[in-house]
Simulated scan of single mutants.
Amino acid sequence: MNETFLDLEEVELELDEALLEAVDEKAFADHRDNRDAAIRDLLDEWLKRRDEE
Rank of each mutant, 00 (worst) to 15 (best):
residue 1 M to N: 07
residue 1 M to H: 08
residue 1 M to C: 06
residue 2 N to W: 05
residue 2 N to G: 09
residue 3 E to H: 09
residue 3 E to R: 12
residue 3 E to M: 10
residue 3 E to S: 09
residue 4 T to E: 12
residue 4 T to Q: 12
residue 4 T to A: 08
residue 4 T to G: 05
residue 4 T to D: 13
residue 5 F to L: 11
residue 6 L to Q: 09
residue 6 L to Y: 03
residue 6 L to G: 00
residue 7 D to A: 08
residue 7 D to P: 00
residue 7 D to E: 14
residue 8 L to T: 11
residue 8 L to A: 13
residue 8 L to M: 15
residue 8 L to H: 15
residue 9 E to H: 08
residue 9 E to Y: 04
residue 9 E to N: 11
residue 9 E to T: 07
residue 10 E to M: 03
residue 11 V to R: 14
residue 11 V to L: 13
residue 11 V to C: 10
residue 11 V to A: 12
residue 11 V to E: 10
residue 12 E to M: 11
residue 12 E to Q: 14
residue 13 L to N: 02
residue 13 L to E: 02
residue 13 L to W: 09
residue 14 E to H: 08
residue 14 E to W: 02
residue 15 L to V: 12
residue 16 D to Y: 04
residue 16 D to C: 05
residue 17 E to G: 03
residue 17 E to Q: 13
residue 18 A to P: 00
residue 18 A to V: 12
residue 18 A to R: 13
residue 19 L to T: 14
residue 19 L to K: 05
residue 20 L to G: 09
residue 20 L to Y: 13
residue 20 L to Q: 13
residue 21 E to V: 12
residue 21 E to F: 07
residue 21 E to Q: 14
residue 22 A to M: 10
residue 22 A to R: 13
residue 22 A to S: 12
residue 22 A to Y: 06
residue 23 V to G: 04
residue 23 V to F: 06
residue 23 V to A: 10
residue 23 V to S: 04
residue 24 D to N: 15
residue 24 D to C: 09
residue 24 D to T: 09
residue 24 D to Y: 07
residue 24 D to K: 15
residue 25 E to R: 14
residue 25 E to M: 08
residue 26 K to E: 10
residue 26 K to A: 10
residue 27 A to L: 09
residue 28 F to I: 11
residue 28 F to Y: 14
residue 28 F to N: 15
residue 28 F to Q: 15
residue 29 A to D: 15
residue 29 A to V: 13
residue 29 A to F: 09
residue 30 D to T: 09
residue 31 H to M: 03
residue 31 H to D: 05
residue 33 D to G: 12
residue 33 D to F: 11
residue 34 N to M: 05
residue 34 N to Y: 02
residue 34 N to A: 08
residue 35 R to D: 02
residue 35 R to G: 01
residue 35 R to A: 02
residue 36 D to P: 01
residue 36 D to V: 10
residue 37 A to N: 04
residue 37 A to E: 11
residue 39 I to A: 04
residue 39 I to Q: 00
residue 40 R to P: 01
residue 40 R to H: 10
residue 41 D to N: 09
residue 42 L to R: 03
residue 42 L to H: 01
residue 42 L to P: 01
residue 43 L to N: 03
residue 44 D to P: 00
residue 45 E to P: 00
residue 45 E to I: 06
residue 45 E to H: 07
residue 47 L to G: 02
residue 47 L to D: 03
residue 47 L to F: 09
residue 47 L to V: 10
residue 47 L to Q: 04
residue 48 K to M: 06
residue 49 R to N: 08
residue 50 R to D: 10
residue 51 D to M: 05
residue 51 D to P: 00
residue 51 D to C: 01
residue 52 E to G: 00
residue 52 E to A: 07
residue 53 E to N: 03
residue 53 E to M: 04
residue 53 E to I: 04
residue 53 E to F: 02
